[in-house]
Structures are given as C-alpha cells and as structure tokens.
Simulated scan of single mutants.
Amino acid sequence: MPTTRTIEANDRERIRAFLDLRWGGPTIMLDGRAIDAAALPGFIGVDAGGAIAGLVTLLDDAVQSEIVTLDAMRAQTGLGTRLLELAAERARVLGLSRLLTRTTNDNLDALRFYQRRGFRLHRLAAGAIDLEREADPAIPLLGRHGIPLRDEISLVRVLSAD
C-alpha cells in the first residue's frame, strides 16, 4: 500500500496537477463558493515511485470537517479508507464532532463507499447541479451509468470522542 502522510507545502504543485487530472481543476464549488482544493489541508498517499496514489482535502468550520476531494487512483486497495480515517482522526484532534462529504446523485460508488464507512444520508440539494451547470456549462447532463446529473447529496459521520 502507498505511504500516507499529511500534505506539506512542497506538495501543492503536484496536488494541483493531480486535481487537474482527476477533477478538471483544483476549484471545487461548495454552496456557490469557489474553493481551491489544492490549498487545503489534508492527506496524501504516495506510491513507491513518489507519484500521488491518493488524496483527501478538507475544509473545516467550528463544528465539522468537510471532505472536499477524496481520490484513490486504484480502487479497492484500502487507500481511500485509510485517507478517510486519517481525516476523521484529524477532525477529532481538532475537537470537531462530525465529518461531512457531498456527492452527486449519479455517483453510486461514492454513496456505497461512504455509507459502508459509517456515513448517513444528511441532505438532498435537489437541482444543485443544474444550478452549477448554469455557471459552468461544461458540467455534463448525463453522469455515471447514464443517470441524469441533477442533485447533490450530503452525507455525515458523527465522530466519537475516542
């Protein structure tokens, strides 16, 4: 398994390139705000050759830490789960009570992944992707599995004080 560690300042340009590849750029829209995911705290997974194998970026407020991006280059290796658990540990250390994430209505793999790791459905923002598409027409009409891409689903995991 790749080694995991906290994101460091000298990782930022590589993270920006990784987000360009995986997300089409480092800017992620959250509730109408443009967030530069490449500038956020988080954790990185690096393979034996030094390439980024996985990444989680986080945005904190007074109550929670939100997963802005979570990627593992190879599925079902345990890296995504490891990065998620590092994010949960960090939130607990910061005294935060929950971990939040969002996905789109077509991302069945993400919905399954998060629910199997203790997340519960929290909020449905019906039409949220339709609104984002008005600002960014490059967002496709059809998502994964031919499902119309329309809505955003938030999931939350309450963190114990362990």
Rank of each mutant, 00 (worst) to 15 (best):
E66V: 05
L100M: 08
R133D: 09
T103V: 10
Q115K: 10
V93S: 08
G78E: 02
R90F: 09
M73V: 15
L94T: 04
E66R: 10
E66F: 02
A126F: 12
Q115A: 08
V93L: 14
A75Y: 06
Q64N: 09
T103F: 06
R102E: 04
G118W: 07
R120H: 03
L124I: 13
R112V: 08
G118A: 04
G80N: 01
R74I: 11
L111Q: 15
R117Y: 03
R90K: 10
R92F: 06
S97F: 05
R98E: 05
R90N: 09
L70Q: 02
E134H: 13
Q64T: 13
A110K: 06
E132L: 13
R117W: 07
G127N: 04
L124H: 11
N105K: 05
A75D: 04
L94E: 15
H122Y: 14
Q115F: 02
L70R: 01
N107P: 05
T81C: 03
G127R: 11
A135G: 09
R116G: 04
R133K: 07
A88C: 15
M73Q: 05
T81I: 09
T104S: 14
Q64P: 02
R74P: 01
A88P: 13
D130K: 07
I67V: 08
E134K: 12
T101I: 11
L94A: 15
Q64Y: 11
T104F: 01
A87T: 04
T81S: 15
R92P: 05
L124E: 10
L96I: 08
G127K: 13
L108C: 14
M73E: 14
L121R: 12
T101F: 00
L86M: 12
R82I: 00
Q115C: 08
A128T: 10
E85A: 06
L100Q: 05
R133W: 09
A110S: 15
Q115P: 03
R74E: 13
L100T: 01
E89C: 12
N105R: 07
E132H: 06
D109T: 11
S97N: 13
L94K: 14
T77K: 01
N105F: 07
T77Y: 13
R82C: 06
R102C: 14
A128Q: 12
T104K: 04
L99H: 09
E134D: 11
D71A: 15
D130T: 13
Q76W: 00
R90H: 15
A125F: 03
Q76A: 11
T101P: 01
L96N: 05
G118C: 02
A72W: 00
V93M: 13
V68T: 10
R98P: 04
R74T: 13
V68A: 02
D109K: 13
R133S: 10
L131P: 01
L79T: 07
G127D: 07
Q115E: 15
A135H: 11
G95C: 11
R98D: 09
